[in-house]
């Protein structure tokens, strides 16, 4: 069953005195319930516009974005409240996506308070402490500010904040690309473990194909506002059919010096021919 469905979504930006920019062209994307689906593209491909549309902060020019029967761009009142509670986001940069003035307790507990899921202060604190333990932090961190944590820990806080209200759909926008290399694996494992344990659905937006291959069961590739290839990630990444996907895959640096040098030789040869 599909939990999130984008149907023929178009978005055109009009700027004064310029050609209109078609940021999204007939996007069709389905996120099946209980899966981790990857959306891969380069900067300017339309990834950000898709996320903003799902957030309800950007209205598509045409098409529908349906979450569990609710058309997000038109949602109001109770429907909008349900979307806000059931769809949560984890952003790229945990430093700027966490309010620097709030303590961890307030940050993680905010959703519980706003959606009146836990109005009692001490019980809320206890639940936040549980959540922190779940993401690998501890109840000693409750009264600290995000600034005193490392990048990886901040992203854990952001994940705890998103998971606090028990979302059904988690949208992750490049959740590890701003983190230190040695910490990325921790956060990826955490996301994977949480998803397996709690069974929520994930839309994972990334530019790194290796990361996508590691954690996504399905993947869609977007190029200049269009989905050019979509399917199970093993199939798409092992035997890409679209030239763009092939080019992306070829460009991924290979951490094997022999293979990488051979690639470099080939590229130099191509360069000379061209």
């Amino acid at each position: 069953m599909s939990l999130l469905e984008l149907r023929d979504v178009c978005k055109t930006f009009h700027a004064f005195g310029r050609e209109p920019v078609k940021a999204l062209r007939d996007i069709n994307l389905t996120v099946e319930e209980g899966t981790i689906t990857g959306l891969v593209g380069e900067s300017g491909s339309g990834k950000t516009t898709i996320i903003k549309s799902i957030m309800g902060l950007e209205k598509p020019t045409s098409g529908t974005i349906t979450y569990d029967g609710i058309n997000i761009p038109e949602a109001k009142g109770d429907e909008l409240r349900r979307v806000r509670r059931e769809v949560q986001f984890v952003f790229q940069d945990p430093t700027s996506s966490l309010n620097p003035r709030m303590t961890v307790e307030k940050l993680v507990g905010e959703g519980l308070l706003v959606h009146k899921l836990e109005t009692d202060r001490s019980r809320r604190r206890a639940r936040v402490a549980d959540l922190l333990t779940m993401v690998g932090l501890s109840d000693r961190d409750l009264d600290r500010h995000p600034r005193s944590f490392s990048g990886g820990q901040r992203q854990r806080i952001a994940i705890a904040r998103a998971l606090a209200i028990g979302p059904k759909l988690l949208i992750c926008d490049e959740p590890v690309s701003a983190l230190d290399v040695s910490v990325q694996a921790q956060v990826l494992n955490l996301l994977q473990d949480m998803q397996e344990e709690l069974g929520f659905t994930v839309l994972f937006i990334a530019h790194d194909l290796a990361v996508v291959r590691q954690i996504c069961s399905r993947v869609a590739v977007i190029q200049s506002g269009q989905i050019v290839e979509e399917g199970p990630s093993e199939t798409v990444l092992a035997n890409p059919t679209h030239p763009y996907t092939q080019a992306l895959l070829r460009a991924v640096p290979n951490p094997n010096p022999t293979v990488a040098r051979q690639r470099a030789q080939e590229r130099l040869a191509e360069e000379k021919v061209a």
Binding site: S150, G151, G152, Q153, D180, V181, S182, V183, Q184, A185, Q186, L188, N189, Q192, D208, L209, A210, V211, R213, Q214, L237, L249, V252, N254, P255, N256, V259
Partner: peptide, 26 residues
């Protein structure tokens, strides 16, 4: 550290059931 780094980075030419990690942060 070098060993850990090499294992912790997902590779495009192979998948592992679970990434090996380096605990903590720099």
């Amino acid at each position: 550290y070098t060993q850990g780094l090499l294992q912790a980075v997902p590779r495009i030419d192979q998948t592992v059931p679970r990434l090996l990690t380096i605990a903590g942060a720099p």
